[in-house]
Nucleic acid binder design. Structure first.
Lengths: 348, 348
DNA sequence: GGGATGCGGGTAAACGCTTTCCCAGAGTAT
DNA sequence: ATACTCTGGGAAAGCGTTTACCCGCATCCC
């Protein structure tokens, strides 16, 4: 079969992946036809040809070379995702939503981890840019003001190259963003805790300037005060469990009256605080109440179960993916959150 | 400057990413020289030229097009990672290790999620194959026997294309593997629990055929029996929290004597069991003891703290990355685990 | 002084695709 | 029968890189 003349690829090593050329030759059609059959094209191809090509492809185990496709088309099938720390359940859930959406859309997602380090973030965006991704989802909780000009420059270069950028949470830049109602959720939590009879609160936040943290702190303060409560201290530290424990240690050193409530601006921080409270020999709940934010699965497993604000992280990730694909997407409705009162903040 | 003759790219839209061609023209050198300067090459280039090129690149914001580079070189700078569920802390930790290693090596990692679905896994490998990745890390806890020929086929195609495959845990195939001493760790746990005075155990595992689960079950049984204990039941279910609760419900329905210990083959399953035990009005610890495996962070936060076996997941991920890059790597030493006795299994 | 040998820049041919033309043949209207 | 319009296959020109090869120029050795 296919005794096509020259057979230029005769010496091709049998090991390397078969190319479109191989498939076309095997099916006895031109490169163009093979391409049209195997990869979406507006042009129609006769059934008979189509079948031949498809079965040759199947037989040879052909799989389109995405890189070559990307250079030829000038656009890739890649979505880049930048998170602070993939081991953190917050980002894990988010990534899960993104990955699912990408899979549905036939895209591949590449992931990079900033570790909340600005320098690193710039480097990573530069590296990701090399892939000419169709889109970039920025979920590395960044600091608001610090829209470093160098980062800005990389991001602009990426959009100039045809990539769309979407941020999760306010991005600082003027990119479309999937907005989470951190402030509203925190306010509702503050109100609910005041209604449960708490009058004194300590807030454990991340460093000043981290937008998510600041919003949650402000929202909580508004809500708690409006219900008649008082914010006795705001302590800022790291964004992880360790940050929570050390901030709580500091709070305890300053003295914490029984009946106070501690609000950690993320569940992870709140869990760190719980650990510190226990280590100090105090009791979580009736003695010192604790509330978090995010509703990570662990919150349900600890005792007492952690009061928190549910953030539909997987859905947020999915939405971010949709946003990054849809040119006409404009920052949609802010995602509304829901307060989950549990035993870590008993009625007083 | 650079009044090079024709200026063929005059009408290039100002927006698109600058190409190497642009840089070369701007610096007044040839494409070859620019390439040699900007991307590693054995050939030397005169300092003066080098500087010119570098500053032009900087000025224009040039970033090499990885796709084009990949097609030209025939090899990409991509590592593909296949996990079962990125929202599961087990895989989150693992992915974290992989991502770090990749970053150090200047590689980009693309991630895909199998959801423990064999069909999906095949589809994903096929899709990832399109990227001609330098390596594939298979961490989706797969079933041993079920080395589906279709999967095998895709994997072979990938290696034929020059990619290296490494599995985390026994892969079923004959690929190099980062081995975790599941059996030994579980055996040690069994011995330790027997030594704490337990004599009756219920094991909660995943479906039969999932290698990791089977190894842990067998190891635990060996150890516990050798210490004089008795395995009263083995219940198999899902690999997630939900699987743990329903398996535990089943166990409870059959009656669980006080003083028994429940071994969940992963912390996630164990936590599900804890939840079920509580819902049934029983107490975790003195009444029904619980132990897990993996040492995910949550285990330290729950009360009572969960007895478990520490698996250095991040390190495992890092090792897997090294393995996938190093042609001469042969399945190294098995990673040794450590038993962590905590309050969920008090001394009897 | 003259050939051998480096050195280092440039030219152009790949790499594996997509896509714009071109063109032959078939159908249709006059 | 002629002129026109569709259809749909194929040839070939890209896409942005790398790299084998060529070639002019110093340098060096006898």
């Amino acid at each position: 079969m296919t005794d096509i003349t020259a057979d230029p690829g005769r010496d091709r090593p049998r090991s390397a992946s078969p190319t479109l050329h191989d498939v076309a030759r095997h099916a006895g059609v031109s490169l163009a036809t093979a391409s049209r059959v195997l990869n979406g094209s507006t042009r129609k191809v006769a059934e008979s040809y189509g079948d031949r090509v498809r079965s040759s492809a199947e037989l040879l185990g052909y799989s389109a070379n995405l890189s070559a496709q990307a250079t030829a088309k000038g656009t890739s099938a890649i979505i880049a995702l930048l998170v602070a720390d993939i081991a953190d359940p917050y980002f894990g859930l988010l990534a899960s939503g993104v990955a699912h959406g990408a899979d549905e859309a036939g895209l591949v997602v590449t992931i990079a981890i900033t570790e909340r380090d600005a320098e690193r973030e710039i480097r990573l965006v530069r590296a990701l840019r090399g892939q000419r991704p169709r889109g970039l989802i920025l979920a590395a909780s960044r600091r608001a003001e610090t829209t470093d000009p160098r980062l800005k420059h990389e991001l602009d270069a990426l959009t100039a190259g045809g990539g769309r950028i979407v941020t999760v949470g306010p991005g600082g830049g003027d990119f479309p963003a999937v907005l989470i109602d951190n402030r509203g959720g925190a306010r509702a939590l503050g109100v609910a805790l005041a209604a449960r009879g708490y009058r004194s609160a300590i807030v454990l936040g991340a460093l000043e300037g981290v937008r998510t943290s600041d919003d949650r702190i402000e929202g909580f303060s508004e809500g708690f005060r409006s219900g008649g409560g008082d914010i006795s201290r705001v302590i800022r530290g790291g964004f992880d469990r360790e940050g929570g424990t050390s901030a709580m240690d500091e709070a305890l050193a300053g003295g914490v009256a029984p009946g106070a409530v501690v609000f950690g601006i993320s569940d992870v921080i709140a869990l760190g605080a719980v650990s510190a409270i226990r280590k100090a020999g105090r009791e979580v709940g009736a003695d010192i109440a604790v509330a978090g934010f995010d509703d990570i699965p662990t919150g349900k497993d600890v005792t007492p179960a952690l009061t928190t604000v549910h953030v539909p992280l997987t859905q947020v990730g999915h939405e971010a993916l949709r946003a990054v694909l849809d040119d006409s997407w404009v920052s949609g409705e802010t995602i509304i959150l829901e307060v989950l009162l549990r035993e870590s903040t008993p009625q007083r």
